[in-house]
Design a protein around this nucleic acid. Structure first.
Lengths: 346, 346
DNA sequence: TCTGGCACTCACGCATTCAGAGTGCTAATA
DNA sequence: TATTAGCACTCTGAATGCGTGAGTGCCAGA
């Protein structure tokens, strides 16, 4: 990868203005327009020489002979890493964002939806928020309700205002009283622990079963096992996808279709977002960097969010590679912090 | 509207083959191809005369002078109402559909999702299933869980395997025991009744409150009131939207965007689908008939489904006006019946 | 009432032209 | 040695024209 040591000040400044210019008006930028930059103060010919160098280094390229230059992925990368001057948010905006996140709803877990909508509304691109990873999330309360036959509805509430519903099949018919008892037991023993931890405990408890006197406890642990054994498929809340249909760089129907299919498949996107869980702060994938073909012409700006200082999820913005990074980055950063704050159990 | 009395046998047959032909290969059909139809056995010139009549009646029209004819909305309408020969499903297909609906999941309420996916998978268009109307749906069980402060999580299960979660704000802090007691009371009194009925009962109970001795009952009714007072916004499960991006008649980006925005707004679509609740059997909106601009170039084939013989929702298929109605119609019909059967509480 | 024939229209594909934008290269300049 | 002016060159995109094929409408004759 090329870093800013390899280039002199002038070339870097030229690249910077070129990228800014391109982001601003979407046209390939030629030597003439750049020569008008007061700080550059060079003739078009000189600028052409510099641009030729930048092109040799793979930072820019021209779509065709007479068309000015466009940043490549490496060009964007260098720009974002070293040249970007981020625009901090106004504090009034910040207040506004915060209040829109905290606005009351009657739907549990809707903060995530709100965050997603906030991301897409403000950026006019697509917003995405992963649901908190169940692994690290803490169990608050569990409840069993009998359904038909041996089917039992499990309801459990976790930190982060989330309610989960799941149907399990028990080995025999349980009475409502038995179910209640099992729930009581589990609430007493497991509440307040992370689901990963609980899964460990279940295993231990099941081994120790033979020694236990109380059949009710064994039943309870069995049910817990049924509930928590498989790793749940993670999920996310997406919004503003339709905004993406307005961008000319995504106007190719075939490509757009692939992108939307990736969105509804969820698998790939989740996998991509999961990579951001490990990283502190804002992370950016530009174009092909993501490794997912569907995202080839998109950029993804993400940040992780947490509940009670434990990182549990990722949020971000998806848009065309040509996006206003200097605004998007601080915005994603702030939104992640606001969401974390909103989810903290007070 | 034009009906089949106004036209002679031959014109009708011509219209029928024209529409079938157009649906089959998507090209405007000219007099030459139609003249090759063995049952018609007419010269192109005669066919042109007949077509001119059909055009005068607004049943077909030509995109331009030398381009053959295409059915108009009225043409499709007449075709669908009187000329269509539906293709009944193979019983092997039927079994397959049924088993894919009944396949077990651990997510409550996922039958609807499965039905939606079935619709879109089989038709290669978009499938939609509205959630059961809460009005008519029957309460099975209700539960209260304390959250922070005066916020209480209400969980209630209805017929049709659906679990609803909602957060209410109570006027004062309730202990878990009090909440339990309230739930017990409500389960005893309200379970087995439709939510509309329950709303009535709540009103009566609240009037009668002053006379009641038991404060617990008053609290319970208050909570029920908070839970059930506002009409819930209805919702639907959509799938296979991306299939729509493959159709040339929907390839206009601006139009497609409007369509997808309508999908995510939900309001308009819900309103449209609600109209089908009242009608027995399959109902069809062709192109502009729906009255929603976003659907101008789409057709919608719907049928209502029921739980325990009470109509509660609508499912359907959305695709371009040029769709294989003779297959889609029986398929939607059957799917609705299968879903109703699957939802019947055995 | 049906049909053959004929003139007409239009979309589409193809080649051509032209202006505009931007480049690379070279030779002159500071 | 770095910068610049100048020039020839390339490519796009819009405009234009032309020929072809498909399909029509209409008329006159069977």
């Amino acid at each position: 990868m090329i870093n800013n040591q390899d280039l002199n000040e002038r070339s870097l400044y030229l690249l910077k203005t070129l990228v800014e210019r391109y982001i601003h008006d979407g046209q390939p930028v030629g030597s003439r327009v750049l020569s008008k930059d007061p700080k550059l103060n060079l003739s078009p010919a000189t600028i052409r020489n510099v641009m030729a160098d930048l092109e040799d280094m793979g930072l820019i390229h021209s779509p065709h002979t007479s068309a000015g230059r466009v940043p490549t992925v490496s060009g964007y990368r260098l720009f974002v890493n070293s040249l970007l001057t981020v625009k901090p948010l106004e504090s009034s905006e910040l207040d506004q964002f915060q209040s829109s996140l905290l606005a009351d709803t009657d739907e549990p877990g809707d903060v995530l939806g709100k965050a997603s909508r906030l991301l897409s509304d403000v950026t006019k691109m697509a917003g995405v928020v992963t649901l908190p990873r169940r692994e690290t999330v803490v169990l608050r309360h569990i409840e069993f309700l009998p359904m038909s036959n041996t089917r039992v509805l499990v309801i459990f509430v976790t930190d982060g205002q989330e309610v989960h519903n799941k149907i399990i099949h028990t080995d025999r018919l349980y009475s409502p009283a038995e179910l209640q008892q099992a729930a009581n037991y589990l609430n007493a023993v497991y509440a307040g622990r992370s689901l990963a931890k609980i899964r460990d405990l279940i295993l231990k408890d099941m081994e120790g079963d033979r020694n236990k006197v109380n059949q009710g406890m064994i039943d309870a642990v069995n049910m817990a096992q049924l509930t928590f054994s498989q790793k749940p498929k993670d999920d996310y809340v997406l919004s503003g996808e339709t905004n993406l249909m307005g961008f000319s760089e995504l106007s190719d129907m075939e490509r757009l279709k692939q992108l939307f299919e990736a969105f509804s498949q969820k698998r790939g996107v989740i996998h991509l977002l999961d990579q951001c869980l490990l990283v502190e702060g804002v992370q950016i994938f530009i174009g092909e960097e993501s490794g997912y073909q569907a995202f080839d012409h998109c950029s993804l700006v993400t940040s992780s969010y947490s509940i009670n200082d434990e990182v549990v999820g990722v949020l971000g913005v998806i848009g065309p590679t040509r996006m206003a990074y200097e605004k998007i980055i601080p915005f994603v950063d702030v939104t992640a912090k606001l969401l974390s704050a909103a989810l903290n159990s007070k």
